[in-house]
């Protein structure tokens, strides 16, 4: 199953994009500048409000027509998955930042730290611990989301499985059975990791 490499690289690329964007969007959601806040809110609500598959089709089929931006299936897949899951992940970032007690911010102000220092050294390190389990869950969702790109003809595991089935209908059971197991094997480390992070996060911080 060569498709696995496509699936995994898609997962990694869109995962990286999603987490970077999520940080940016999450930070802008708590920005003091109202315009920035509203703009990111629109972005987040838009991507959370519509279906991933519809977005994928829109970016792959409509963008070339509308603005003459042509993306190959892989880029389109990465961009859509990245943008979509970044919207969900940014909510986690925002929640985690807001969950840091106000006293921490006040203490940082009292210590005469700049806004940047406050975020970088005080808030983020604490927020990060709360974020991690959520990120683990998101990456599982992302893995599952990658199967959709087969519908815009990217040759990932799903797409190749469909081809195999088309070649011999009587093999459907084996093909899709194996495919299910493959996806689960890929997801398993992520599941275990996120469970572990969840346990750790709830243990370490609770006493503080």
């Amino acid at each position: 199953m060569r498709g696995a490499t496509v699936t995994v690289s898609l997962l990694l690329a869109s995962g990286a994009l999603a987490f970077i964007l999520a940080f940016i969007a999450g930070l802008s959601r708590v920005s003091e500048n109202k315009a920035v806040r509203v703009l990111t809110m629109i972005y987040v609500e838009f991507f959370r409000g519509t279906s991933l598959l519809v977005q994928l089709f829109w970016i792959f089929f409509v963008l070339p027509q509308l603005f003459d931006i042509r993306l190959d299936p892989f880029t389109a897949g990465v961009v859509t998955l990245g943008l979509n899951y970044a919207a969900y992940a940014s909510e986690i970032v925002r929640g985690a930042i807001l969950a840091v007690p106000d006293g921490q911010t006040e203490a940082a102000i009292a210590l005469n730290m700049s806004k940047f220092q406050r975020m970088r050294y005080i808030i983020l390190p604490q927020a990060l611990r709360t974020m991690l389990p959520g990120f683990g869950n998101i990456s599982i969702e992302l893995l599952k989301g990658t199967s959709l790109v087969s519908l815009i003809t990217l040759q990932d595991m799903m797409y190749l499985a469909q081809n195999l089935r088309a070649a011999d209908y009587s093999q459907s059971l084996q093909v899709f059975g194996i495919l299910l197991i493959l996806y689960f094997v890929l997801a398993l480390p992520l599941i275990v990791l996120s469970r572990y992070l969840e346990r750790r996060a709830s243990r370490g911080v609770a006493s503080a």
Partner: peptide, 23 residues
């Protein structure tokens, strides 16, 4: 539960629609 949550809906869909009749 873990298995169903760990695999994509799309794959499950194909499994149910195409492969299930062959079980």
């Amino acid at each position: 539960i873990e298995f169903v949550r760990g695999t994509p809906v799309l794959v499950q869909l194909f499994f149910v629609y195409f492969a299930w009749p062959l079980v």
